[in-house]
Protein backbone atom coordinates (compact mmCIF):
# COMPACT_ATOMS: atom_id res chain seq x y z
CA UNK A 1 0.00 0.00 0.00
CA UNK A 2 2.86 2.34 0.85
CA UNK A 3 4.22 2.17 -2.63
CA UNK A 4 0.81 3.06 -4.04
CA UNK A 5 0.38 6.22 -1.97
CA UNK A 6 2.34 8.52 -4.31
CA UNK A 7 0.28 7.26 -7.23
CA UNK A 8 -2.93 8.06 -5.36
CA UNK A 9 -1.64 11.52 -4.50
CA UNK A 10 -0.87 11.94 -8.17
CA UNK A 11 -4.42 10.88 -9.07
CA UNK A 12 -5.88 13.39 -6.64
CA UNK A 13 -3.63 16.12 -7.95
CA UNK A 14 -4.53 15.28 -11.54
CA UNK A 15 -8.25 15.50 -10.79
CA UNK A 16 -7.60 18.76 -8.99
CA UNK A 17 -5.70 20.15 -11.98
CA UNK A 18 -8.42 19.33 -14.50
CA UNK A 19 -11.14 20.64 -12.21
CA UNK A 20 -9.11 23.76 -11.56
CA UNK A 21 -8.63 24.47 -15.25
CA UNK A 22 -12.35 24.02 -15.85
CA UNK A 23 -13.24 26.39 -13.02
CA UNK A 24 -10.71 28.89 -14.28
CA UNK A 25 -12.21 28.66 -17.75
CA UNK A 26 -15.66 29.31 -16.34
CA UNK A 27 -14.32 32.46 -14.77
CA UNK A 28 -12.46 33.85 -17.78
CA UNK A 29 -14.41 32.49 -20.75
CA UNK A 30 -16.23 34.99 -22.89
CA UNK A 31 -19.64 33.40 -22.62
CA UNK A 32 -21.63 30.57 -21.07
CA UNK A 33 -21.57 27.29 -23.03
CA UNK A 34 -23.25 27.19 -26.41
CA UNK A 35 -25.96 24.56 -26.12
CA UNK A 36 -27.72 22.27 -28.59
CA UNK A 37 -25.02 22.41 -31.25
CA UNK A 38 -25.84 20.34 -34.30
CA UNK A 39 -23.08 17.98 -35.43
CA UNK A 40 -20.86 19.35 -38.16
CA UNK A 41 -20.34 17.32 -41.31
CA UNK A 42 -19.89 20.20 -43.70
CA UNK A 43 -22.55 22.71 -42.76
CA UNK A 44 -25.79 21.15 -43.95
CA UNK A 45 -28.24 20.18 -41.22
CA UNK A 46 -27.93 16.53 -40.18
CA UNK A 47 -30.59 14.05 -41.19
CA UNK A 48 -30.30 11.68 -38.26
CA UNK A 49 -28.68 11.46 -34.86
CA UNK A 50 -25.15 10.28 -35.54
CA UNK A 51 -25.00 8.09 -32.44
CA UNK A 52 -25.87 4.83 -34.05
CA UNK A 53 -24.80 1.24 -33.78
CA UNK A 54 -21.48 1.74 -35.49
CA UNK A 55 -20.62 -0.99 -37.94
CA UNK A 56 -17.20 -2.14 -36.80
CA UNK A 57 -15.71 -3.91 -39.80
CA UNK A 58 -12.69 -5.00 -37.84
CA UNK A 59 -14.54 -6.91 -35.15
CA UNK A 60 -12.46 -10.01 -35.82
CA UNK A 61 -9.39 -8.01 -34.84
CA UNK A 62 -10.90 -7.48 -31.42
CA UNK A 63 -11.18 -11.26 -30.98
CA UNK A 64 -7.56 -11.74 -32.03
CA UNK A 65 -6.57 -9.01 -29.66
CA UNK A 66 -8.47 -10.56 -26.78
CA UNK A 67 -6.63 -13.84 -27.24
CA UNK A 68 -3.28 -12.05 -27.08
CA UNK A 69 -4.39 -9.95 -24.15
CA UNK A 70 -5.19 -13.00 -22.07
CA UNK A 71 -1.82 -14.43 -23.01
CA UNK A 72 -0.21 -11.19 -21.85
CA UNK A 73 -1.65 -11.64 -18.38
CA UNK A 74 0.41 -14.83 -18.12
CA UNK A 75 3.46 -13.35 -19.73
CA UNK A 76 3.95 -10.48 -17.28
CA UNK A 77 4.52 -12.79 -14.26
CA UNK A 78 6.36 -15.21 -16.55
CA UNK A 79 9.10 -12.60 -17.11
CA UNK A 80 9.95 -12.78 -13.40
CA UNK A 81 10.47 -16.54 -13.27
CA UNK A 82 11.68 -17.48 -16.75
CA UNK A 83 15.33 -17.31 -15.72
CA UNK A 84 14.77 -19.72 -12.84
CA UNK A 85 12.50 -22.11 -14.72
CA UNK A 86 14.90 -22.37 -17.64
CA UNK A 87 14.35 -23.53 -21.24
CA UNK A 88 11.10 -25.39 -20.49
CA UNK A 89 9.31 -22.12 -19.65
CA UNK A 90 10.65 -20.52 -22.83
CA UNK A 91 9.44 -23.37 -25.02
CA UNK A 92 5.99 -23.30 -23.43
CA UNK A 93 5.52 -19.55 -23.73
CA UNK A 94 6.77 -19.15 -27.27
CA UNK A 95 5.00 -22.29 -28.40
CA UNK A 96 1.79 -20.72 -27.17
CA UNK A 97 2.65 -17.46 -28.93
CA UNK A 98 3.40 -19.33 -32.15
CA UNK A 99 -0.08 -20.87 -31.99
CA UNK A 100 -1.65 -17.45 -31.55
CA UNK A 101 0.41 -16.07 -34.43
CA UNK A 102 -0.81 -18.90 -36.62
CA UNK A 103 -4.33 -17.75 -35.77
CA UNK A 104 -3.47 -14.19 -36.79
CA UNK A 105 -2.02 -15.33 -40.09
CA UNK A 106 -5.11 -17.42 -40.75
CA UNK A 107 -7.36 -14.43 -40.01
CA UNK A 108 -5.21 -12.32 -42.32
CA UNK A 109 -5.43 -14.84 -45.13
CA UNK A 110 -9.19 -14.94 -44.71
CA UNK A 111 -9.29 -11.15 -45.13
CA UNK A 112 -10.40 -10.44 -41.57
CA UNK A 113 -7.96 -7.53 -41.26
CA UNK A 114 -9.41 -5.72 -44.27
CA UNK A 115 -11.92 -2.94 -43.96
CA UNK A 116 -13.91 -3.19 -47.13
Amino acid sequence: MDTLTPALVMLAFGVLLVTGVRILARAVSVAAPLTDVLPHAGGLPPVEHPVSRFHVRWYVVTMVFLAFDMEMIFMYPWTLVVAQKGPAAVVEMFGFLALLMAGVLYAWREGALRWT
Binding site: A41, G42, E48, P50, S52, F54
Partner: peptide, 25 residues
Amino acid sequence: LAMADLGEDRDGLALDQLHVPLGPV
Protein backbone atom coordinates in the same frame (compact mmCIF):
# COMPACT_ATOMS: atom_id res chain seq x y z
CA LEU B 1 -33.74 14.50 -35.65
CA ALA B 2 -34.62 10.89 -36.32
CA MET B 3 -32.51 7.90 -35.34
CA ALA B 4 -30.60 5.91 -37.93
CA ASP B 5 -32.45 3.13 -39.71
CA LEU B 6 -31.37 -0.40 -40.43
CA GLY B 7 -29.90 -1.45 -43.72
CA GLU B 8 -28.13 -4.49 -45.08
CA ASP B 9 -24.35 -4.62 -45.05
CA ARG B 10 -22.12 -6.45 -47.54
CA ASP B 11 -22.78 -9.73 -45.74
CA GLY B 12 -26.55 -9.22 -45.63
CA LEU B 13 -26.62 -8.36 -41.92
CA ALA B 14 -29.10 -5.69 -40.83
CA LEU B 15 -27.11 -2.81 -39.33
CA ASP B 16 -27.54 0.91 -38.75
CA GLN B 17 -27.25 3.15 -41.78
CA LEU B 18 -26.46 6.80 -41.33
CA HIS B 19 -27.42 9.41 -43.95
CA VAL B 20 -24.92 12.24 -43.92
CA PRO B 21 -24.65 15.27 -46.19
CA LEU B 22 -20.87 15.78 -46.46
CA GLY B 23 -19.52 19.19 -47.29
CA PRO B 24 -19.19 21.88 -48.41
CA VAL B 25 -17.40 23.27 -45.32
